[in-house]
Simulated assay, not measured.
Amino acid sequence: MSRLIPLALATLMFVPAMASASGRTLDGVNFTGPLITPNPAGMPKGNAYVEPYLIRTDSDRYYDGEGRRHDSPDSSAWLMVLPIAYGLGERVTAQVNLSAARVEAAGERSRGFRAGDTTAMVQYALQKSNEDGTRPAISLSVTQRYATGSYDRIGGNPLNAQGDGVQRTSFGLGMQQVVWMPNDRPLRWRAQLTASPAPARVALNDNSVYGTPDGFRGNYAPGSLLGVSAAAEYSFSSRWVGVFEVAASRQSDRRLSGYAPGADGNAQRVELRLPATRVVSLAPAVEYHFSPNVGLIAGVEFSVAGRNTGSYISPQIALGMFF
């Protein structure tokens, strides 16, 4: 579930539009932002943006180490995510993401919606866009993930684990620009590169999200992460926008080590190496804008390639509100 955590915010939808030197204007142009790629332009000082998401994820196949897909037991989840962004200054935006999930697999389910991990981000704008959006907005960001979701000591139901215990710091470089098409309608593209060094080991006790048994004592060593995503939004009218997005990520090798009770009751050494994972996904979507301050986006993200990870399809819908 952790991969779902990277989510979109709105930008030019809420920036007061003015006529540019070219005569073009963003007046009457609304964007909510795509589903995956974050907003590199930030929020205006003193303004806030809230965008609650409802996401459904289904998986019945997985990718092996060669990238071939195989059948696997069905699993599904409902995920609610609440990104909240606030403009602290002309160039500084702060954001927090809250989440909760309900998971089903093999006829079992978690005990209702349970809190997941939380992320907090600070973003600094290196370059602001101009009035018609043709000058790229460029930003740097630092994101800290906090292990607020349960991940060990979860009893006999592993689906009650909605976090992974990893306290991860990520660094991002984002860019966004408006390109005016020959019909004088704008296409806005954005891209984000994210890197995260391997964080500290996670201490594990008893049953955990990593499949450890009752009585286990040990730790999990997460790998480093590298991710990239790109998106394009084409404004058909003041209300309707078409979206297409592509994302890819890679996590390096991970290790699980410790001791677990054996059949004879004595502690036995556990030492597992988990191979690197990769996944590539696409996410088409459509936006509808009720007003310049309220917009709805609905789409579906689905994996198209991967290594040592699950194959999935993830319909989702979000309502963006600017204050």
Rank of each mutant, 00 (worst) to 15 (best):
A106F: 09
I317Q: 07
R217M: 12
F31K: 00
R56F: 15
S235R: 09
R145W: 06
D132L: 12
V96A: 13
F290D: 06
W189R: 06
P40M: 11
S314Y: 10
V178H: 07
P38A: 07
I55A: 07
E245N: 14
A263I: 00
G33V: 02
N97D: 12
R201N: 13
P44Q: 10
Y151H: 08
Q162G: 03
A125Y: 01
L296F: 12
T277D: 04
S196W: 06
A77P: 00
E271K: 10
D264Q: 10
S59N: 04
N47Y: 06
A305R: 11
R61M: 13
D214V: 03
P197H: 05
T11P: 02
R201T: 14
G242Q: 03
G23N: 08
A276F: 01
G28A: 00
E66H: 13
Y124G: 01
R61H: 14
E131G: 01
N157M: 00
M80A: 15
E90T: 13
G165H: 08
R278F: 11
A203P: 06
M1Y: 10
G265R: 15
Y62I: 09
R69L: 09
T309S: 15
V202H: 04
A318N: 13
G310N: 15
V241S: 03
S75P: 03
S314G: 11
P136G: 02
T277H: 06
P222Y: 14
T32C: 07
N160C: 02
L12K: 01
G33R: 05
E51W: 04
G155K: 09
P34Y: 09
A21L: 07
G211C: 03
N293I: 02
V96M: 13
V29Y: 01
P6W: 10
N30G: 00
A137Q: 06
Q316T: 08
A276I: 02
R185F: 11
R24H: 10
A267T: 09
F216N: 02
Q192P: 05
M13H: 09
A19D: 05
R201D: 15
L82R: 04
R24M: 05
R168Y: 03
E51N: 15
A41H: 01
R68V: 00
Q123M: 12
G262M: 07
T32S: 13
A125F: 12
T93V: 05
I84E: 04
W189C: 05
A221K: 07
Q251C: 12
S303E: 13
R278M: 02
A231S: 15
A8F: 08
G89Q: 14
A77T: 03
F323C: 01
D27S: 00
R239V: 05
G112K: 14
P186H: 02
E108Q: 13
I313T: 13
Y53W: 15
G42Q: 05
T212H: 01
Q144C: 02
A105L: 14
A147D: 10
A19T: 14
Y124N: 06
S224L: 05
R145L: 04
G149N: 03
R102P: 09
S235M: 11
L296V: 14
R307C: 15
A195E: 11
E233S: 15
P292G: 03
T212W: 00
D164R: 03
P275T: 12
V243T: 04
S139R: 06
S291F: 12
L88F: 08
G174K: 04
R239E: 08
V29M: 00
R255T: 14
L4I: 11
Q95G: 03
Y49K: 01
L26N: 02
D164I: 10
E104S: 09
V50A: 11
N308A: 13
A198D: 07
L88W: 07
